[in-house]
Amino acid sequence: MKILRTITELRAELKQHTDAGSTVGFVPTMGAFHEGHTSLMRAARQQHDIVVVSLFVNPSQFPDRAVFDRYPRDERRDAAMAEAEGVDMLFAPLVEEIYPKGFATVVSVEGELADTLLKTKLSMDGQLTGMCTIIVKLLNIVQPTTVFFGEKDLPHWIAVERMAADLNLPAEIVVLPTVRECDGLAMSSRNVHLGEHRERAGCVPSALRAALDTASSGMRDPQLARDRALAELAVAHVEVDYVEILNARTLRVITDLSEPAVIAIGARVGGVPLLDIARTHPPATPTVA
């Protein structure tokens, strides 16, 4: 596996393969790899000739500088994990390579989708623009055949799907199921900060299951599902940021659980922000060995 630091190096390396007709699978990340990341790498490896993974902690996605500074970083470990999954190229640029002096262009999703993400707290002010800008930059740099996302990161892939449609981005977008720990907690780079609060974090997947059980029982009032989720979170005495039940396609607030929905939960456990989602009518997804 080659570790590449500059856009020029990466493009030169990729050109040798794409000129020969190779397809490229791409997994954009901020590092601190876990099974959720490696499942995306395996899917890319199965489907494409060349696999590229980016490792870049994007400062423009962190409104709070202290949170950016605390984000876990261990490039040596991440590189070893990526190599074990058969990744061909790890793109790990410095901030100055991505945002050179004089950088003055941003990309963002606006309108109803952006309003919904902000109103429901699925995205904080500033995060969406930072995420959209870096993803468009990375897609332009790598020019992949397919880009892979994890389902848990709903604001990312929802916004990227919108951008791809609006801006005619050629990459296919694949969203794979969330990978979970034994108690159902969604794997996340933030989990390393839970410490003594790790057991209480199990209330987040429990709340999701409670809401899903309500939806599958035939009850049609989304408030009942929301109340059950909130009750599970209350037992664990965690700080709730949001519990939202939204249309799976438009992200509008729904009034009837008979329509396909996304249940999204954000909570702070021991001060660590955790987020998770589930779909009431999960779509068919590719099988990953």
Rank of each mutant, 00 (worst) to 15 (best):
K2N: 11
L4S: 00
T8F: 02
E9W: 00
R11F: 00
Q16C: 02
D19I: 02
A20R: 13
G21Q: 09
G21T: 08
G36S: 07
T38L: 15
T38Q: 05
S39A: 12
A43R: 11
H48Q: 11
L55D: 09
V57T: 12
N58R: 06
Q61I: 12
D64Y: 01
D64E: 08
R65V: 14
A66W: 00
V67D: 15
D69W: 02
R70I: 03
R70E: 11
R70H: 11
P72A: 11
E75L: 15
E75V: 15
R77V: 14
D78E: 13
M81R: 15
E83D: 15
E83K: 14
G86Y: 06
G86T: 11
L90D: 05
L90V: 14
L90K: 04
F91R: 05
P93C: 02
L94A: 12
K101L: 08
K101N: 02
S108W: 00
L113W: 07
T116N: 08
T116I: 14
L118C: 04
K119V: 04
K119Y: 02
T120R: 13
T120C: 06
T120E: 14
K121A: 08
L122G: 03
S123H: 06
G126R: 08
Q127A: 06
T129S: 10
C132S: 13
C132I: 11
I134D: 04
V136A: 13
L139P: 10
Q143Y: 03
K152S: 02
D153W: 01
D153L: 02
D153T: 01
P155Y: 00
W157I: 05
E161Y: 01
E161W: 01
R162V: 02
R162N: 12
A164E: 01
A165C: 04
A165I: 03
I173K: 06
L176G: 06
V179G: 02
G184A: 04
N191Q: 02
V192E: 01
E196P: 07
A201N: 06
G202P: 13
V204M: 09
V204E: 09
S206R: 15
A207K: 14
A207N: 14
L212T: 12
D213E: 15
S216Q: 15
S216F: 09
M219W: 05
D221S: 14
P222S: 09
P222G: 11
R226S: 15
A231T: 12
V235R: 08
V238I: 12
V238P: 10
E239A: 14
V240W: 01
V240N: 10
I245E: 07
A248Y: 00
L251W: 06
R252I: 00
I254L: 10
T255K: 11
T255E: 13
S258Q: 08
E259Y: 03
P260N: 02
V262L: 12
V262W: 04
G266L: 06
A267E: 04
V272N: 10
P273L: 09
L274P: 08
L275Y: 00
L275I: 15
R279F: 13
T280M: 06
P283M: 07
P283D: 08
A284Y: 01
V288H: 09
V288E: 04
A289T: 09
